[in-house]
Amino acid sequence: MSAHTVSMRDALYEAPGPKTRRRTRIITGISLVLVAIGVGLIVRQFYVTGQLDAKCWSFFLRQGTWRYLFNGFLGTMRVAATAGVISLVLGVVFMLGRTSGIKPLEVISRVIIDFFRGVPSLLLIYFFYLALPQYGLRISAFWMITLPVALAASGVLAEVFRAGVNAVPKGQTEAALSIGLTPGKTMFKIILPQALRIVVPSLISQLVVVVKDTTVAYVVSYPDLMQNARVLITNNDALVQVYFVVAILYILVNYGINQLSIYMARRSGNPIISRTTENPT
């Protein structure tokens, strides 16, 4: 017997037979027609209402417009990246607390996790924006948007990490302890690295949520992509056009994040799921 690796795709789907292939072709054809009709209707409506007129788009020819949008884009990236990093670190910290085996620490971590998971991030933003200054705590607009977004994500990430840690077979811990690693080293050298690989897909979805969460930055007047877009809209009276471009930018960013995750999954793609490492009963 050679150790053999099971890819997710093979495990979930069998290879399509001739009937399935024909059905797939028919469904694909129908879908394409429906999409074409939908797009056609939208374009027609825009055309009729004059949204496609050149004068409605001409301000995109100005360099200033793009510079302004780009600055907003940078703002969004700064918030998203900082919030992403903070939430990853806090997520691990909360997860470690939650699984520490020390009762008071477990309870506290659990309350924190459930709180940040349960409270909408907009509410957290209002807290930082409206409540904190009343107690004399002044932080910049950047942190007023970044911290709430990070905290909200950290609660979810803690649970994601915990699921990953639980998914690592128990035998890994036992083997690590039996060669004399302390429980702490066992966690950091053996369990967490494997748990991280398991949860990469969930981490990526959460990163996308973080990027989307930053769009409420206008509440604290932080100049992110969304806030700058609103300014452009008011100045140029071009709601459809600006939001169209902005939506494409957001989609590109999140598409980029997804591509990055696929690349990372390939790079760290040791075939670690194997028949021979499963625990026999």
């Binding site: 077979p169 035998g171 890994q172 036992e174 083997a175 690590a176 302890l177 039996s178 060669i179 004399g180 053996i190 690295p193 494997q194 690989r197 040791n270 670690i272 194997s274 021979t276 490492t277 499963e278 625990n279 026999p280």
Partner: peptide, 16 residues
């Protein structure tokens, strides 16, 4: 524990 080796039924090599 370091001074007592243990070999398991399911090998338990560090998979990563």
């Amino acid at each position: 524990r370091a001074e007592i080796g243990m070999v398991f039924q399911s090998f338990n090599l560090f998979a990563h």
